[in-house]
């Protein structure tokens, strides 16, 4: 790849605010274009005995959509965010305690999962929890003609042949999370992953 970013490989303008909520131990708001997610972290706090683990902190993630009750899609996303955060969090330093991460979708205009991951990472950072590394999420849309668009809007996602979301950790840029919608070839996945890695 050349050193200049190709058209379509530019991210939407993004903004971060940390420490905006007074009650949670850590909070962050992440805005990507028109997509905005608010995250709050409580922890390390008391844990229910059923969730208690003698080896590491029990991490719970709650994802609340903008309208309606959380459904199967939200549960699936909660599981993905939880496992990504568990890989980055040093839970061994706080056994028999719980860390609760609450994500509230304020507005959804595409790339929602990566916005949630970014907000989660910054909220954990704001709470002062020990982390092995930082991580960030990026979404990419493959148009039917093969063009790659980073950080797609809702319209681009709808028209795309495939939408891929990746999360990379900060130390060695290895892949932490991957989820795809739509079918694509193995070469396209590799190419997109490399493009994501450089943009991160």
């Amino acid at each position: 790849m050349g050193s200049e970013p190709e058209p379509g490989c530019a991210l939407r303008p993004f903004a971060v605010e940390q420490g905006l909520l007074s009650r949670p131990d850590g909070s962050a708001a992440f805005v990507q274009g028109d997509t905005s997610v608010l995250a709050g972290v409580y922890g390390p706090a008391e844990v229910r005995s059923s969730r208690e683990s003698p080896e590491r902190a029990a991490l719970d993630v709650l994802l609340r959509p903008k309208v309606g009750l959380p459904g199967v899609l939200e549960r699936s996303r909660e599981q993905m965010v939880r496992r990504a955060c568990e890989a980055a969090l040093l839970g061994e330093l706080h056994p028999r305690s719980s860390v609760t991460l609450v994500l509230q979708v304020v507005s959804d205009a595409g790339s929602l999962l990566s916005c949630c991951l970014n907000a989660a990472c910054l909220a954990l950072l704001d709470a002062g929890l020990p982390l092995r590394s930082l991580f960030c999420g990026v979404t990419c849309a493959l148009a039917p003609d093969g063009a790659v668009a980073l950080d797609p809007s809702a319209r681009q996602e709808k028209e795309a042949r495939a939408v891929l979301t990746f999360a990379f950790e900060s130390t060695e840029k290895r892949l932490l999370l991957s989820t795809t919608r739509g079918a694509c070839s193995a070469k396209e996945v590799e190419y997109v992953r490399d493009v994501h890695g450089t943009s991160v």
Binding site: Q79, R82, E86, A167, L177, S178, T180, A183, C184, V189
Partner: peptide
């Protein structure tokens, strides 16, 4: 590839 599913870890 219909899906590359790596939920964290």
């Amino acid at each position: 590839l219909c899906s590359v599913h790596k939920p964290g870890g």
